[in-house]
Structure formats: structure tokens, C-alpha cells
Amino acid sequence: MRSYLPDYPVINPTSLDEALEVLAAKSNIKPLAGGTDIMVYMDTGVFPASTLLNLYSIQDFSKTPEFSDGHLKLNPLSTYQHARTDQAIVNAFPLLAIAAKEISVLAVQSRATWIGNVANASPAADGVPALMAYDAMLKLSSKDGQREVPLHQFYQGYKQMDLQPNELITEIQLPPLDPGWKDYYRKVGTRRFQAISKTLLAGRIKLNEGRVIEDIRLVFASVAPYTLRAVQTESVLRSRPLTPEIIDEAAQAIQDEISPIDDIRSTETYRRQVTTNLIRDFLNSNLTK
């Protein structure tokens, strides 16, 4: 633990209102949910001195996600483990359960939260792409009120979010799903589990009777400064019949939309090539059906 513990006071609000009061009144407040990102930053000594707002102490948040009439609401303490073990979620939003399994390992999934994954704003986040593929909406709360932001418009740059210092992400809302969509999720890391993604595709596709792409979602991790919904490539595909030629077009289009880098985990070339492969793999798997 490289961080200097006296630099990190903690406020333990007992209600959401109290937490929002704190955010409104004080500066340099960092919400603390499952801590699985913040504790890593503290261990490596890169977390700036700040006051933490311990969301664990808020009684208002039932940890279990709310699921009714096809709507799913994840609150600040909903963990990945919930998405794996709640059979209703597994059935209704299978990508969440699949993504949850790919995030680190069981002992982290029990503490890491969906909202925390959104708020950490890592381009390599494994949970955010699944949420984005389901058109997730964020509810942001402050002392002054609430507003909603579509998740795919939430990120504005590397670690830049449409989030004010006095706001807390209090809910992720997933709308009910139309029938007829096919899902795809594939994470590429250097080993099977416990890996940071080098690229990742959460995809959904809806084909009509004539094999025309009615609608599509393509969301990628680790190939842009933030979780990328590839809207250009989606629009290349939308309303067009799914054919080998159009798959080639999509594979071409995605290259202009991503901006991967070389780093200690992989190379730009690899990320470009595999991202293309993922799109092909996803679309090809629907071609033959």
C-alpha cells in the first residue's frame, strides 16, 4: 500500500440525500463503491489525496438489482455477482451475465459494481460494453435534482465524463428488449480469466426475415480512449442485407472508427486486426444461421 492513509478521510452517509448533500457542500469528494479500482490506485500510490464517500453505508441501496416488466435497474451497490446469480437477469439480459463472468474473478465480482465500472471510465472496462449494447441509460442525481444520460453519450474523452462534481450515478436503467436480437460478446485478453482486455466486442444484431439488418449495436473496449460504440460502422450495416460483401465493408469501416495504441499489453496492429476479426466472427456467425 503506497498511499499515505492519513490523506484519505472517509465520510459514511446513511442516506442518499446525505450523500448528495456532501457532494454539494464539499470539494474533492470521491464516491467509493466496491473499491476494486480505487484500492488498486491506492496500492500503487497514484490515487490523489481526497475524501471518500462510502456508498456502502447508505441503507437506501438494496444491493440486489430491481427487475420488473422487463426493465432492469442497477443501483450503486449492484455487483457483477448479482448479474451472474440472478436467474431473471441471466435470462433477460444474457450479455450482462456473460460480461460479468469475464470481469476478473469471483472474489472481485462479489464486490465490483456496474456503476463503479461506468464511473471508473476505463477504456478497457469489461462491463460497460455490455451495458452500452443494451442502450443503457444513466440516472445522475444531485442535490438539485436528477437527469438522464444515455451511456453511449456519457464519455467525452479519456476519463472524461458528462458528470458534475456534485453528481452521483445512482442508477443504470436497461429498457425492455424486443425479441429477435442475437447477442455476441467476446473479450480478448492474454489469458482466459483475470486479464485486462486488449480488445473486446459486445455486439447485438436484429435481422428481419429477408436477412436484412434491421438494427445493430457494436461496442468495443480498449481500442479508443473510452468504451466505443461504433456508430459509423453500425450505420454502414443498418438496413442492409447481411452478406459477405457487407461484412467486408464493415471490417473496413471499423478501421476508421477505432484509434488503438501500442502499450505494455499489446500493439496497435494487433488490436486493429483482432477488432476486425471480432466483427467478422460476430457477423459471420449470423450469416450462416
Partner: peptide, 20 residues
Amino acid sequence: TVFMDGLLILSCMTPICQVQ
């Protein structure tokens, strides 16, 4: 690795303020 209320967790990732 330890158990916290029966959950499998990592004690290096858990601040004591959340063990109350």
C-alpha cells in the same frame, strides 16, 4: 482471499470502512 458475510472477497481490495 477471505469470506465476508459468506461472500468470497479479496481483503487487499476491501477498506475497513466497508466491513462495519
